[in-house]
Design a protein around this nucleic acid. Structure first.
Lengths: 229, 229
DNA sequence: TGCAAATTTGCACGACGGGCAAGTTTCTGG
DNA sequence: CCAGAAACTTGCCCGTCGTGCAAATTTGCA
């Protein structure tokens, strides 16, 4: 056990660097193959060869090709949780989620996710590893929400916390899906503004209990710029 | 193409019956193995042997062991969609969902799902096939919701519909999770009443936009009996 | 420098999932 | 009733997957 509490960050030893580099090489190789050959048409051995490692070593880092690709999603969602965690504790959870999501709607952050999404879109359902990443994010939100609700009673708020976290994730996913459907991998400022607006609208819908009969945009908690038609 | 619009229901031919029987035999065998050996400790060949068919034939029905087990979830959710579809079209979607879910909280319907859940609980995440079933259910809800919103404009309501459907599913899942956590596979009337109340509460939370700061049960749309402490 | 620990790699093995082409069962029209 | 068509089952084969194991290699530390 090290005296320092932050082993991976404060100790960029040779081993850590090598592992990180190998890990990155694997995901890069996987992404390159996904671009050139399309989903499901390459094997673990292909990735290992492209990354300059053995097949066996690949499995020391990821348990499947999907897992290697899902590291992109994992990175994005870890980022989201990080943003979410540093919101003030007295802020309503929905607003924290909204703020955290909007903070991520910049080109650098969404670009990898957008590419992954468009490249794997054709194969309908998300991969197991990808869903795992979203599930992990949900658990994180639950943890944060539980701290905030912070009642000494434990079982009463469990439904509230889990339902809220799941709903937030679902609505975030819905916003992303609609955005990808509309704009593909378009990362222009106008497109990103639309993504931000979609995220705001999704959280607003959630906050207002989907009261809109057929007209969307029930109300806007933040006076943000709307997308021009 | 047949003149009759309902080929599978109106034509219980020998072939259909055999296939249905084989399908059932497979899921029964899989479930039995899950009970006796636990998750992940038996192979496709084991199931095939127990069901009295060849390994190859198994793959004519299901693409994996998980898929065979997920037929339980599939059945439950198909039932749910069926209930959901025959709600009046002018009813708010959340109330339709609530009513459909409550209608399923009877022993016969939830028993298989409860057993599957408790047996696979220990292995953390849901299987791919199981998640596929939930995803399929979400798509069904989206389809129904789209009919009800029924605007001639198509892209405006897409976010509303997808966010709502996803949130409903998430909250339903949350209610089930909390129930399983609290009561295990308890199917007593009191336990089922609690499940019903959890489903009601989950949909209420969704309908009220999670406005409750820390106290659950924000309001109750149906004057149903509350769970006695 | 030399030893201990971590990491990579090759090998082997059981399981997976599906294409293919025979067998077998069921349905159809004569 | 029966022969041909269609659907279904089965065995065989192949490439891939994921992992335990032990030898070989690299890195850290004294």
């Amino acid at each position: 056990m090290s005296i320092d509490g932050t082993p991976p960050a404060a100790t960029p030893s040779r081993r850590e660097l090598n592992k990180a580099a190998t890990r990155q090489a694997i995901t890069d190789a996987a992404l390159a193959l996904l671009r050139t050959r399309g989903p499901g048409s390459f094997t673990v051995e292909d990735i290992a060869d492209a990354a300059g490692i053995s097949r066996r070593t690949f499995f020391n880092y990821f348990s499947s090709t999907d897992a290697a690709l899902a590291s992109v999603t994992h990175g994005f969602l870890d980022n989201a949780i990080q943003q979410f965690r540093l919101r003030p504790a007295d802020e309503p959870i929905l607003q924290s989620a909204q703020a955290a999501l909007i903070a991520l709607a910049d080109p650098m952050t969404v670009a990898p996710l957008a590419e992954l999404f468009t490249l794997t879109q054709q194969s309908a359902l998300m991969s197991h590893s990808e869903l795992e990443a979203w599930e992990h994010c949900t658990e994180q939100i639950i943890a944060v929400a539980r701290e905030r609700v912070a009642g000494p009673e434990d079982s009463e708020d469990e439904l509230y916390v889990r339902a809220l976290a799941g709903a937030v994730i679902s609505c975030g996913k819905a916003a992303l899906e609609v955005w990808f459907t509309r704009r593909g991998a378009d990362l222009s400022p106008a497109s990103l503004a639309e993504l931000r607006q979609l995220l705001i609208d999704a959280m607003s819908l959630l906050g207002s209990g989907f009261t809109a009969g057929s007209t969307p945009a029930p109300f806007r908690p933040a006076p943000s710029a709307s997308v021009s038609s």
